[in-house]
Design a protein around this nucleic acid. Structure first.
Lengths: 135, 135
DNA sequence: ATAAACCTTGTACTAAGGTACATAGTCAAG
DNA sequence: CTTGACTATGTACCTTAGTACAAGGTTTAT
């Protein structure tokens, strides 16, 4: 068991971030020393790494809280899991499609870059505005 | 030529957003009536639609300002365009890879959802944490 | 001529996801 | 027995991308 600074160092996050996650209920209330210092274990470190990984992957802290319902075997949060996950799958698939279009646009731009005139003549606005929004 | 409310209505944005874009230099300083009212044309409407579209695609207002350098034929912003675009391409390609992994994870989760036990035994944490971060 | 509906500016507020600081208590070493 | 390094709490501040509002000037309609 170690204190907050040690946990922060191990996870590469700020101490205040850990307190913030506690407030957001992403971390369980830690045990305390007699003086009131928070005490953590490797399970907490693993949980923080999980949170950070999901965050990198584009989940909000609210969504991560929902997903942690599985880890915590929480009936309430798990009850809505199927709907939540289905929605998120669709959302992410749409996002992937959009990003693939962004890559195409950027690569076209990249090819034009060495030549100023080609750049200025780039049909970027028309390309993007006149397409239907992907649904 | 029309005033700010008309432009806002045509573009489906808030009037304050237009003033905010002006302050952020995403829109040029508009001409004014004698009383000081801003006057806009269809070119401004098109520009706002472009901004909104890029925003949907995940660009920040700062990035959009850079890209508008092409539209404005601005030497300074265009000078850094190749580097900017190259970086963004890599970034977005990494993001696509990450999101594809997210979809797989979520679809696995989705399959387990009807069965509580399978859900609780879901190796989500291990799956995500123990993988190398895609670089 | 006067109210309603617009416009101007500036400032303050929102949400998310933190970071930083002020003040006070705790603990180990010299 | 006090200094330095830690921790606690609460509050304030940061960024991004806006939104809302107050106080005042302008335009339009009756």
């Amino acid at each position: 068991m170690y204190r907050i600074s040690e946990l922060a160092k191990r996870c590469g996050v700020n101490k205040e971030t850990i307190r913030y996650y506690e407030k957001r209920q992403l971390l369980p209330l830690p045990t305390r020393t007699e003086a009131g210092y928070r005490l953590y274990s490797d399970a907490d470190a693993k949980r923080i790494q999980f949170i950070k990984r999901l965050q990198q992957l584009g989940f909000s802290l609210t969504e991560i809280h929902q997903l942690l319902g599985i880890v915590d075997q929480d009936k309430e949060r798990c009850a809505n899991m199927y709907e939540f996950v289905s929605k998120k799958v669709e959302e992410v698939q749409k996002q992937i499609k959009d990003l693939q279009r962004v890559v195409c646009m950027l690569q076209d731009l990249q090819k034009r870059c060495p030549d100023d005139k080609a750049l200025y003549e780039c049909p970027m606005i028309e390309t993007l505005i006149e397409e239907e929004f992907s649904t």
